[in-house]
Design a protein around this nucleic acid. Structure first.
Length: 574
RNA sequence: GCGCCCGUAGCUCAAGGGAUAGAGCAUCGGCCUUCUAAGCCGGGGGUUGCAGGUUCGAAUCCUGCCGGGCGCGCCA
């Protein structure tokens, strides 16, 4: 990476006493890169910052890196790199499968928990951010070079299953294929709920069924499995449409920890961490208080002897650290759960399951809001089904395609619409800083213009359009021709391409996909500016044409890879 | 009451403690006989909620307010 080269060069200017100082090299609006260290250093050295900057430049081993190095303002050092340096960097990028993404100094074994839908309920907007953000992070971390273990902590256990199983029996479940229509999941849940509230006898049966389920009754488990299987088919239907990388083997739901909850609780008791309070087994982690200012417990075992989700999360934490031996645990779960996870992690540390350098992080995200700035709901007030949301995304994309090309190929449109529609939804979600709430707006995310998923895809498609035209004209692409940077637009594009590796590394490390979104948008913008300013196939001479074709090829690769890391398709034509 | 998160252009959002706070939408004005106009070029639009503090330098860090959201003992 070029930034690293500059950093080393500037760092080399320091005496041993300042070896650890960050040279603060970054992209600049006024030059190619700038170093901002002189002002801070001036303070320590008790010398004027511009003088310090001069000394740094004089001592820095810049070799033939720069055309010019200037001091500006209070002491900024501005670097303008030699074209040959950029060209050399691009040549290295072309040859690099990793496209300039640096390898981590210490690869982690990342255990990432995301999506986590509930059995016997349809996936709704409440699951979209965890699923999309989690998948993007998993892809990025994997590409960077970490080992990634996905965990889909589905809600497949708990008291609701009593009523669900009884209702399943009532409507003739328990026979193969008797109830496999996935579209009715919500109705199924609602009907069971209504009966449970209205029919005392049914409620009794449901409660008894919970006991049977907990006890491992074979017939009950069989019915439970049926519900789980139906739900899984639904989940994977959604994942398939979303292009989410979760597989069946990644599912390790709440039920998977059921059998180890007693021993987890016993272990906490043995360590003297858990004690009985109000009849419940609790761990009081320091620093957590309730409404009255009294210590707030993490309830491991309830008064009635049952285990709640805190117990499950503790068991999962133990499993992920002790069995999976993860070194970085990620929980892609909504921000409202912040206190819960803070407590679970605190208890995990007390129990010794979480020990530095192993760390757990709650990858929190904000809510999806409607145009009214309130939680997104249907007009009827229900949560929006993910399936219908995706339907609408595809329909809208297809309508837009039809509007653009009324005589276009129907099959092509059908193939393209999901790529564009779903890509737009994903980009709109990922492009926002995840901790903030974000307003879901169809018209904006699928707009014909602007900072959207389609804009990035369009830039990529236009490159392939050039390639198709080249092929028609018998012009070879991918010849390995050298890239020569002449026009300002070519230079600007090169700088963006060279910044890809750093952007990916930073987005993955800080778990903020929107940083990558921002970079890809800048890259796409630089490309379209280049596209307008620099004819490729009609370049003034063959060498320029081949250079620009190579630049296009590299840009297409980076865009496709970047979109791929976000889980967004990069169609070759639009 | 306590805690966490958020507050930036009319709207939706960016901005590792760094220069004149940037984009998109909307608005105004240009650009299609030339590789896709889902595009490009340009204009107008800001007391970064308020007040202090730290710093050579604050949208960013600290304190206190104001406004909004969420959470706070046996649902997950």
């Amino acid at each position: 990476m070029l930034v690293a080269v500059l950093q080393r060069a500037v760092s080399a200017a320091f005496g041993a006493e300042h070896r650890g100082v960050d040279p603060m090299v970054r992209r600049s609006e006024r030059a190619d890169y700038q170093a901002d260290l002189a002002m801070g250093l001036a303070k320590v050295l008790r010398r004027p910052p511009r003088q310090v900057a001069e000394a740094v430049i004089a001592a820095a081993d810049l070799g033939d890196l720069c055309d010019s190095v200037e001091i500006a303002g209070p002491g900024f050092i501005n670097f303008k790199l030699r074209g040959a340096v950029l060209e050399h960097g691009l040549a290295a990028l072309v040859a690099d499968q990793r496209l300039g993404v640096p390898r981590p100094a210490q690869p982690d074994r990342v255990v990432i928990d995301y999506s986590a839908p509930n059995v016997a309920k349809e996936m709704h907007v409440g699951h979209i951010r965890s699923t999309i953000i989690g998948d993007a992070l998993a892809r990025m971390l994997e590409f960077v070079g970490h080992e990634v273990i996905r965990q889909n902590h589905i809600g497949d256990w708990g008291t609701p299953f009593g009523m669900l199983i009884e209702h399943l029996l009532d409507i003739g479940g328990g026979k193969a294929g008797a109830h496999s229509d996935l579209g009715e999941l919500n109705e199924f849940y609602r009907a069971a709920r209504v009966k449970f509230d209205a029919d005392a006898a049914f409620a009794d049966r449901a409660r008894h069924r919970v006991v049977l389920l907990q006890a491992g009754d074979a017939r009950t488990l069989e019915l439970w499995r049926e519900l789980v299987e139906i739900s899984k088919r639904h989940f994977f239907g959604i994942y398939d449409r979303l292009g989410v990388t979760l597989r069946a083997g990644d599912i390790r739901g709440e039920s998977a920890y059921n059998s180890v909850l007693p021993e987890t609780a016993a272990e906490l008791e043995r360590m003297g961490l858990a004690k009985i309070s109000d009849g419940a087994l609790c761990v009081f982690a320091p620093g957590f208080v309730n409404r009255e200012g009294e210590p707030l417990p993490l309830i491991v075992r309830k008064q009635d002897g049952g285990f709640g989700y805190a117990a499950t999360d503790l068991a999962a934490l133990r499993y992920r650290t002790q069995t999976l031996r993860g070194t970085r645990l990620l929980y892609v779960v909504g921000a409202p759960q912040a206190q819960h996870f803070a407590m679970v992690f605190a208890v995990g540390e007390l129990a010794g399951w979480l020990k530095a350098p192993v760390r757990a992080e709650h990858v929190a995200f904000g809510a999806v809001l409607g145009a009214d700035k309130k939680m997104l709901k249907t007009r009827a007030g229900d949560s929006v089904r993910l399936a219908s949301l995706l339907d609408e995304a595809v329909e809208r994309a297809e309508a837009e395609l039809l509007r653009r090309e009324p005589d276009g190929d129907v099959a092509a449109r059908r193939r393209l619409a999901p790529q564009i529609g779903i890509g737009a939804v994903k980009y709109a979600d990922l492009a926002n800083d995840r901790i903030k709430d974000y307003v879901f707006d169809w018209d904006r995310m699928l707009a014909a213009e602007g900072r959207t998923g389609p804009y990035l895809q369009y830039a990529h498609a236009r490159i392939h359009s050039i390639f198709r035209k080249a092929a028609e004209g018998g012009i070879a692409i991918g010849t390995g021709a050298p890239i020569r940077l002449v026009e300002p637009a070519e230079r600007a594009l090169a700088l963006e391409l060279l910044g890809f590796g750093g952007a990916v590394a930073e987005a993955a490390e800080t778990l903020r996909p929107h940083r990558l979104c921002g970079h890809l948008y800048d890259l796409a913008t630089a490309f379209t500016a280049f596209f307008e300013a620099c004819p490729v196939l009609r370049a003034p001479d063959d060498a320029t044409r081949d250079s620009r074709l190579a630049l296009c090829g590299l840009t297409a690769r980076v865009l496709a890879r970047g979109l791929g890391l976000l889980g967004i398709d990069a169609p070759e034509r639009m």
